[in-house]
Every structure is written in C-alpha cells, then in structure tokens.
Amino acid sequence: MPPAETPLNQHSLQALELWLQQLGAQRLEDDPCGWLWKEQGWMAEIRLQQTDLAVIWSPKEAPRPCVFPYGLSRADVEAALRLGP
C-alpha cells in the first residue's frame, strides 16, 4: 500500500479496498462500490465513486453526507472519517 500521505487517486482499487477493510469496513453484498463501517454511536456508508469518496454517516439524528475528493491524502481522509459525524 502507498504511504498514508499519498493522495487516494494514486492508490489502486485493491489498495483502497484493503484500506477500507483495515478500517473495519465491510463491503455491501449488493453493491461492489459500497462499504459499511460501524463504530460505537454511529455507522457510515462509504461509496467509492468515480470522482470522489462519498460518506453518509448515520448517527441517531439525521444522516449526514460528506464527499472527499480523491486528491486528498489517505491520512487526511482517514483522520476525517475517524472523527465521525
């Protein structure tokens, strides 16, 4: 896997999938581009889209969407994801 400072657009699809697995996300059975990541107090649906990584957090309140351009580093996106909604 490339260094964490590498932008997501410089990762292979396999590297992105491995990264999501390492975060604890699980691929959705009915959608090869969708992943579900559950943490205490919230869960996130992560979608590997063509131009960006989309996230919809589902806390107890209303869902909160967010989009991360693939030009951001993996470290920056991971830090933002770990903060949750």
Rank of each mutant, 00 (worst) to 15 (best):
Q14W: 04
A25R: 03
G24H: 02
E45H: 05
P65M: 00
A54P: 00
R47D: 08
Q10R: 15
S58C: 13
K38I: 11
E61Q: 14
A79H: 08
D30V: 09
K38W: 09
A62L: 14
D31N: 07
E78S: 07
M1S: 15
D76Q: 15
C66P: 07
L20H: 06
W35M: 05
L13E: 15
V67W: 08
R27W: 03
K38D: 00
W35R: 01
Q14P: 02
R74W: 07
L72P: 08
G84W: 09
V77H: 02
I56P: 01
K38R: 15
E78Y: 06
L16P: 04
P69N: 06
L13D: 13
A44P: 10
H11E: 00
H11R: 10
D52K: 00
S73N: 13
S58G: 09
E39W: 00
Y70I: 02
G41N: 03
P2A: 14
N9Y: 14
P85E: 08
L8F: 09
L13C: 07
L81H: 07
V67D: 01
L81N: 03
D76Y: 10
P59I: 09
P3L: 13
E29T: 05
N9I: 13
T51M: 13
A80Q: 15
R82Q: 08
D52P: 05
Q49C: 13
A44N: 06
L18P: 05
M1H: 15
G34N: 02
Q10W: 13
W42D: 07
A25V: 01
L83V: 07
Q40H: 14
A80I: 03
A75T: 01
W37S: 00
I56L: 01
E29P: 09
M43E: 15
I46N: 02
N9W: 13
Q49R: 14
R27V: 08
E39Y: 06
G24Y: 01
S12L: 11
L16Q: 03
I56D: 10
R64P: 09
A79L: 12
L8E: 06
L20S: 10
P3K: 03
P59N: 09
P85C: 10
K60N: 12
L81S: 02
S58M: 11
Q14S: 12
L18R: 12
Q40G: 10
P65F: 05
W19F: 04
E78A: 04
G41L: 03
N9A: 14
C33H: 01
S73W: 00
P69I: 02
R27Y: 07
R82G: 10
A75C: 04
F68P: 05
P3M: 11
W42V: 08
Y70F: 13
W42Q: 10
W35E: 01
A54D: 04
E45A: 06
K38V: 12
I56A: 02
S73P: 10
R27H: 01
W19Q: 00
H11T: 05
L48Y: 09
H11Q: 12
D52N: 07
A54K: 06
Y70N: 07
A15P: 08
C33D: 01
R64D: 01
F68W: 05
M43P: 07
W57I: 10
L53S: 06
